[in-house]
C-alpha cells in the first residue's frame, strides 16, 4: 500500500529535515518546501536513497502571502499531512530597536505560518481529512524580556492552532501543536543551553511523527518543559515583571 504524502514547510531547517527523514523512513513520500528549493537537491537525493520514497522540491516563501494559494494548488498531490516548521528568532536586542526586524520576526513566526496553514485548513476541511502540524514554541507561553518579540509571535501562532483545532475537530481534520524547548539547531548554535532541557531535531521529529499517528493535540518534546511552563505561567505578574527569567 502506498502511503500518503507529507509536506514540510520550511524544509531547510534542521527540524524540517529531521521530520522529513522520519516520515520518509516510514515510507511516506515527502514534499519539501522552502525558499531556493533547488538548493535542497542533495537532501532530496539523500532521502530517496536512504528511504526509497518519492521526494519533490517546491519553491515556497512564507512571507509572500500572495503566492500561498497558488503554491497549494500547484502541489502535484494534495498532502495528507502539512507541517509548518518555519521560524525566525532574530536577536531580541535588535528586535527592540529595529522595528522592521521585529515585524519580520512576527510575520515569520505568526502571520506567514498561520496564513499558509489556513489555506490547507480550508482545503482539508472540504476534503474531510488531513493533519495540520504547527511547530510553535514554549516561548509563546508567556512573554519574557529576553525574547518577547519571538515569543509573542509564537503565542499568536499557538492560539491560532488551538482555534483551528477547535474549528476542525468535527470535520475529520486534526491539528497538532508542537512546543519544543531548547533544540540543538542552527537557530540555537553557540548558545549555552542546559543539557537536561535540550533535545535534538531527531527527537523532535520522532515525537512529531508519533503525535500525528496518535492524533495528539499538543506536545512538549521534553516532559520537564510542561511543568516548567506550568510554573512560569502561574507566577503572578507583579512578581514576574521584576524577575529575570
Amino acid at each position: 500500500m502506498t502511503k500518503s504524502p507529507v509536506l514540510i514547510l520550511g524544509a531547510r531547517s534542521d527540524i524540517g529535515k529531521a521530520t522529513a527523514h522520519a516520515f520518509a523512513a516510514l515510507g511516506h513520500p515527502v514534499q519539501l518546501a522552502a525558499r531556493n528549493a533547488d538548493t535542497l537537491k542533495a537532501d532530496q537525493s539523500d532521502m530517496v536513497l536512504r528511504h526509497n520514497v518519492a521526494v519533490s522540491l517546491h519553491e515556497f516563501d512564507v512571507l509572500d502571502l500572495a503566492t500561498h494559494a497558488a503554491f497549494v494548488d500547484g502541489l502535484p498531490e494534495m498532502p495528507d499531512v502539512a507541517i509548518c516548521v518555519v521560524g525566525l528568532m532574530g536577536e531580541q536586542s535588535q528586535n527592540e530597536q529595529d522595528l522592521d526586524a521585529a515585524v519580520r520576526v512576527m510575520r515569520s513566526n505568526y502571520e506567514g505560518p498561520a496564513h499558509i496553514l489556513a489555506e490547507f485548513a480550508n482545503r482539508f476541511e472540504v476534503r474531510g481529512s488531513g493533519t495540520l502540524v504547527g511547530v510553535s514554541s514554549v516561548a509563546g507561553e508567556r512573554g519574557r524580556a529576553t525574547n518577547y518579540v519571538y515569543g509573542s509571535a509564537k503565542a499568536g501562532f499557538s492560539a491560532f492552532l488551538s482555534g483551528l483545532r477547535n474549528r476542525l475537530a468535527g470535520k475529520g481534520v486534526h491539528v497538532v501543536t508542537v512546543l519544543p524547548g531548547f533544540v540543538e539547531t542552527k537557530m540555537t548554535e553557540g548558545m549555552d543551553l542546559p543539557a537536561p532541557l535540550t533535545t535534538t531535531p531527531d527527537h523532535v521529529a520522532q515525537a512529531l511523527v508519533d503525535a500525528v499517528e496518535r492524533k495528539v493535540n499538543i506536545i512538549y518534546i521534553k516532559r520537564t518543559w510542561r511543568y516548567i511552563m506550568m510554573i512560569i505561567r502561574a507566577i503572578p505578574e507583579s512578581i514576574f515583571k521584576t524577575r529575570k527569567i
Binding site: 534542521d14 542533495a42 537532501d43 537525493s45 539523500d46 536513497l49 536512504r50
Partner: peptide, 19 residues
Amino acid sequence: QHLNRMLAFDPDIGQLIAE
C-alpha cells in the same frame, strides 16, 4: 555532521557517491 547526504547510487557497479 550536517554534510551527510547520500548523493547518488549506481546499482550496476555498486558505486555510492556521498558526503
